[in-house]
Amino acid sequence: MEIDTEAEIDLDPVTRLRALEHLTLLCPSAPSADDWQRLCGLPALCALTMRATAFATLPATAVFTEVTELALLTDDGRTAQAALHLLPRAFPKLRFVSVTGRVAPDTDLDITSPAGLRHLYRVHVGVGTTRVRGADTLPSTVEVHDLD
């Protein structure tokens, strides 16, 4: 399911779709803490695409136990970095993470945080900066792709 709108939306109907496997949620505002908790409760959700800014409201208790694929869209290195920092706690079964968008060419992006994910096998970074740090901290089994 894809929701890409500039309007505010009510996520309650989405969080009732128990068989939902793929969700692209690109809205102007971040989900509320309650919305995050309800999204975590979707038992079949395995792939999630969101703006990195949405993770600013992710509660510490939110854990996506079934999500294995995550795509973060960003236009700001700081929000991407903050979202990456949350991955090991919030997405313990993550196998693939993608960070795409545009950040200033002189922005550092540290991808060390996903190193704590046991199941991780691929990281894709396409954000317009050559200053990606931390790839060397990832296990040798993790593929790192498209470093600009």
Rank of each mutant, 00 (worst) to 15 (best):
Cys27Leu: 12
Leu20Cys: 01
Ser32Leu: 04
Leu39Trp: 02
Thr15Gln: 00
Cys40Leu: 12
Ala44Leu: 12
Thr61Tyr: 04
Asp75Ala: 10
Thr65His: 15
Ala19Asp: 10
Asp76Arg: 00
Leu48Ser: 00
Gln37Ser: 12
Leu72Ala: 08
Arg16Tyr: 05
Thr65Ala: 15
Leu70Pro: 11
Arg18Tyr: 04
Leu72Arg: 03
Leu48Glu: 00
Val14Thr: 12
Asp35Leu: 02
Thr15Met: 00
Ala47Leu: 14
Arg18Lys: 10
Phe64Val: 07
Thr65Glu: 15
Gly77Lys: 02
Ala52Lys: 02
Leu11Thr: 00
Leu11Asp: 03
Asp34Cys: 13
Cys27His: 11
Arg18Thr: 11
Phe55Ala: 13
His22Tyr: 13
Arg51Asn: 13
Met50Asn: 07
Leu25Trp: 02
Glu21Ala: 15
Leu58Gln: 09
Thr57Tyr: 15
Thr57Gln: 02
Leu11Phe: 10
Arg51Gln: 13
Arg38Asp: 15
Met50Arg: 01
Arg78Gln: 11
Arg16Leu: 11
Leu58Ile: 04
Leu11Tyr: 05
Ala56Cys: 06
Leu39Ala: 10
Leu39Glu: 05
Leu20Gly: 08
Ala56Val: 14
Ala60Val: 09
Leu25Phe: 02
Asp34Met: 07
Trp36Cys: 06
Gly41Met: 08
Ala30Ile: 03
Leu42Lys: 06
Phe55Pro: 06
Phe64Asp: 00
Thr53Glu: 14
Leu72Glu: 12
Gly77Leu: 07
Cys40Glu: 11
Ala62Arg: 06
Cys46Asn: 14
Val63Glu: 07
Arg51Thr: 13
Gly41Ala: 08
Ser32Lys: 09
Ala52Val: 01
Leu48Phe: 04
Arg78Met: 09
Asp76Asn: 05
Ala19Cys: 01
Thr15Tyr: 00
Thr61Ser: 14
Ala47Lys: 11
Ala71Met: 09
Leu25Met: 05
Thr65Ile: 11
Arg16Asp: 10
Ala54Cys: 10
Val63Ser: 06
Ser32Arg: 03
Phe64Tyr: 08
Cys40Tyr: 14
Leu42Gln: 01
